[in-house]
Amino acid sequence: MHITIDADSLRSEIRDKSVRVIDVRKEEEYKKSHIPSSVNLPLANLLSDDSPEKVLKLIQSLGIDDETHVIVYDDTFGALASRVAWTLQYLGHEDVSLLDMTYGQWTSLGLESDQKIPSYESKTHSINLHPEIMATADYLEKEKEKENVILLDNRERLNFLEQHIPGAINIPYRTLGAPDRILKPKTEIKRLLENRGIKSNGEIITYCGSVGTLSGLAYYALKSVNLPNVKLYVRSFKEWKDLKKPIQKQEHATYWDLSAE
C-alpha cells in the first residue's frame, strides 16, 4: 500500500475507473466542485458516530468493498483526509491512500474538477478491526511509561508549551508537511526523526487537540517512512483533559506574548 498517491497516478486511475475517491470536505464545498468521480464523506458525518458498525454502513453506501482502492483528499493540509483514511484502516480496509496534495493545490495546478455528483451501487464490506493502530487513554497512560515508547504531540508549539500529556514530545503537524505537498519528502522526515532520536524500532503514539486529525496526518507521516508500530490516540487531548488526567506545562515563561496573532 502506498501512503500517498500523486495527482498524475490518481488521474489515470480515475480514467481507469479503478478507484473510489473520497472528498472529506463539507457538503457545500463538495457541491461547488470536486475531483471528478469523487464521493463526499464530510469528516463531521463520520465523527458524529464512528462506531465500526456505523462506519461500515457509510462506506458500503459509497460503493466500497474489501478490494476497492480508496483515495482520500481534503483542503486542510491532509489532516482531515488522514483521519478518514485511518478510520477505514482501523475497520480493516487495507487499500487506502491519501492524495499527496490538497484540493486547493489540485485546482491551482489547473487539474480537472467537476460538479457532477456520482452515485454508486452499495457494496458489502467486512469488519476486521485493527486495534494495534489505536490507543485509548488507559492504554496510553500505562504504555507511555515504558522505555521505548514515544508519545508525540502534534499540536502547534504554543499550545504544547501551555499544556500537554506528561512525557510527550512535540512535533507540530506543520513540521511534517511541505508547502506544496501534505507530507515532506521521506528523506526529510527521516532526517527529522533521526535528529529527534526517534528510533524505528519503538512504539509511537500520536495525539493532537481533539479528534485525531493533526495526529492522523502525523500517523501517516511516520508510516510513510516505514515505522512499524504507530498508534493514534484518536480521542486525543480533549478526552485526556475531560478525564482529568495529569497535565504538564512549560513553566516560568510568558511565551504567548511573543505571538503576533
Binding site: 504554543l158 511573543l258 505571538s259 496573532e261
Partner: peptide, 9 residues
C-alpha cells in the same frame, strides 16, 4: 510556521 511558534521577531 514549521519549527517555531508561527511568529518571528
Amino acid at each position: 510556521e514549521t519549527f517555531s511558534i508561527g511568529s518571528a521577531h
